[in-house]
Design a binder for these strands. Sequence first.
DNA 1: CTGTTGTTCGTACGCTGTACCAACAACGCT
DNA 2: AGCGTTGTTGGTACAGCGTACGAACAACAG
Lengths: 247, 247
Amino acid sequence: MASADDSALIWTRAEPGTRRPKFTRDQIASTALSIADTEGFAAVSMRRIASELGAGTMTLYYYVRTKDELIVLMDDAIMREVLIPADEFPAHWYDALTAVAERTWDVLMRHPWALRSLQNAPTGPNAMRHFEQSLAALAATRLAATAKFALLAVVDDYVHGNVLRAAEFRAAKTSTVDEEVIEAAVHFAESQYATGEFPHTQELFGGKDPREVFPRLIGAESERDRFRHGLAMVLGGAARRLDLPLR
Amino acid sequence: MASADDSALIWTRAEPGTRRPKFTRDQIASTALSIADTEGFAAVSMRRIASELGAGTMTLYYYVRTKDELIVLMDDAIMREVLIPADEFPAHWYDALTAVAERTWDVLMRHPWALRSLQNAPTGPNAMRHFEQSLAALAATRLAATAKFALLAVVDDYVHGNVLRAAEFRAAKTSTVDEEVIEAAVHFAESQYATGEFPHTQELFGGKDPREVFPRLIGAESERDRFRHGLAMVLGGAARRLDLPLR
DNA sequence: CTGTTGTTCGTACGCTGTACCAACAACGCT
DNA sequence: AGCGTTGTTGGTACAGCGTACGAACAACAG
């Protein structure tokens, strides 16, 4: 019988506090978050967080059992941003699901390291709230529970997959790549075209500067608009399959 | 002007070999892959790979500049598995795209650590072949290049997002979680329901053993079938938007 | 058989997460 | 007010990581 203080789950283990400690779990998590946002997830180390807080490294281990637990806290802090204020919650399932998906996208794109780095943690309180909101979006439909589950899964999959790629794409655009690397890449691509193995790719890129071709292929839309169009495709296809009213 | 041996890109840098070296890049990459498959990506260290090969650790650095380059090789080795034999390539765009997506799914699920761990590497030869196959799938359609790009992106996003979740789900089912952790999680969930903040979630899970409820929510379908149904939704929605013939 | 140089790998450095334990300080009790 | 308990802090140490450096070995040309 696990008492409150030796629980295996951080959510059921009481935060220390009978004699005012210097820090809080929230404080530690948000410090970790801001390091990750400004310098990337790799820069988040226990020593780094501690020195940011003006504490000894091992002090953190009084608030958290392992670094993984700290990551769980980071995860939950991010999920908090995903929640939609109750008074902004749309009534129609399509609008509600769109709002949830777009907000999730916005948040994950603000923390592009998150999807790759956060182990999919045991569901914390804010992840639960997010799930509740997702169910609420479909409450007015008369879908069976399994159909709701399937629909939410498809939307979630698309959102996460899109962020995974879009975040990386944005990073690639932002970071200054050595001219030398680009040149080598172009050279490599051309040598591959020369094998004749890549007719379609060559038709698109062959002989041209990829930095000029790429934007044209992508079109004038912003990343976010491209995401929204993809989302519309997904929701449209789902509505058709599940016989849901599109509007 | 980068000569063949000091190129910034591993693909354009010649593999050593004027005096027969002990190993090949392929050998090293496949050793790394098998370690990752059997013990997880975290177990892949330079020392570990080397000892598996009976070599000194630093020997690997003769074949590869950094561990990241080795990861690029792993990535490309995985992409090789994704390629569809030419004689199995379906003619109709829907079937072709489905085949590419399903094969990608199968491979990524065999290497569940891959999506999370492999930096999205600069496109290697097998990634190029995969992209060529994706374009080939849409060659018979008369879509504009930008539309092809958008469609492929949506499908890719869904596939990757689904693998991200499904792989983790499978891992969760496989690994033996401490009874203690499950108990703590159930306890935590119940205490959250008690706040009244989670009516929809509670209706689904409240008071029941989640290990019994979950399979029922998911339904009788296999992971793979659930993926295929989601894919059909996505392709259906895309076909509608892009005015493509579904069959 | 020798000189060149491609190939191997031992040592060392700074980084990581964290186990262990000594020291400090806040509070309840007398 | 002073003492004892114990919640809280954090120093030291250890095994592991990626990899820079450079010495040693060995394959081949002459």
